[in-house]
Write a protein that binds this DNA or RNA. Sequence first.
DNA 1: TCTGGGGTCCTAGGACCC
DNA 2: TCTGGGGTCCTAGGACCC
Length: 431
Amino acid sequence: MTYALIDANNFYVSAERIFRPSLEGIPVVVLSNNDGCCVARSNEAKALGIKMADPWFKVKHFNESHGLVGLSANFELYGDISDRIASITAGYGHRQEIYSIDESFIDLTGIRGDLVERGFKLRSRILQWVGVPCCIGIGETKTLAKLANHIAKTSERKPGSYPRNLAQVCNLSTLSPEEKEYLFARTEVNDIWGIGRQISQQLQALNVKTVQDFMRLSSSLVRAHWGVVVERTHRELHGTSCITLDEAPAPRQEIACTRSFGRPVTDLDTLREAISTFATTAAQKIRKQGSYTTRLMVFIRTSPFRKHDEQYSRAITIPLRRPTADTHYIAQAALAGLSQIYLKGYNYAKAGVHLLELQSTATSQGELDLDNDPQDRTTLMTAMDTLNDRYGKGTIGIASAGIRKGTWHMKQERRTPAYTTRWEDMPIVRA
DNA sequence: TCTGGGGTCCTAGGACCC
DNA sequence: TCTGGGGTCCTAGGACCC
């Protein structure tokens, strides 16, 4: 097999730069909800030592010292840009898996010709048509394609880390065993797709520091220590394809809406409003997917970062009497759950609603649904979704869900002027 | 003062059944 | 006194991903 991974560089930052060329060459971060954490960093921001998920208040001093710019995220825009890139990328091979908002795997098996040259052409096409720089990694398995992509990106960003000719597009599948050994010995074990913080710490303790060290472990030892998932990763690094390309991912098995609050929340009324809103959003999401939920989970928690606060974290799952996608029903169930877990006297920092056990029909398994459920209501809900899609979120809602605006505070003012250009207004350059 | 929001899969352990 | 064993289902928690 031969796979490619095409990955946009610093995607959210690159997407913002399309419309604001003045952001080019300066340190930029894109911030999460409440402008809380850095979720994307430009190369210049990475060079300042800013890490993924660093809180804004800890890095904003770079604003005065180095001109760091913090932008509130604009996920609708990123979704549009992502679709554009994915449709161009699809032409690179016969099959595509859209893996995340900024990544696609492409099956290149059996494609003749110089894959690196084709990769560079694809890359410049995306840059020219959309304006986002990408890197491409190619390998015999998805894990190796990921690793190749890491090498392509790192050798561009940190000259000298790897041979220069591997920058931007890196094909591991045509390298000799010696060349690969050389690269794997210079790559840290935690850069492997599937090896996260915990496992890489355990590996370090066993003096396994590089990809090469890890590959030299026996499969059986890897399996015994870390289970079948990590063993699969180990096999993939050795060139045995275990993770298949998934062109049409199954519908989501669970859908959630959770938020951190802009400031601590203590009273039940405010929490009820928040939970109603989350339930409403989550219900919209499952209707969009055409699913019904049969169980939901509500949670509330204090902030683990406020060390002097008394900590409290609880979740409850509520079985539903029948599969449903009805906002009102879901919100009521969520509120009933909330009332069971709420305790007075804590500073709540985060809450959420998860809809679980999603299924594609409104009928319980093996049961004829004679209940008065509510084709009518579903139709009403769908009409509501259409209006909200067309005229903006929150145009219309369910009064009984208890949604009132402005009491619980989530989104602060944007730190930079609101971004107004819509995708349709964007200049399109054709080659 | 201020610390994201989604998802997936696997495993261990308890309850229950025969 | 001696107190089975295997299968299934469920849940919680832990690990990973972006």
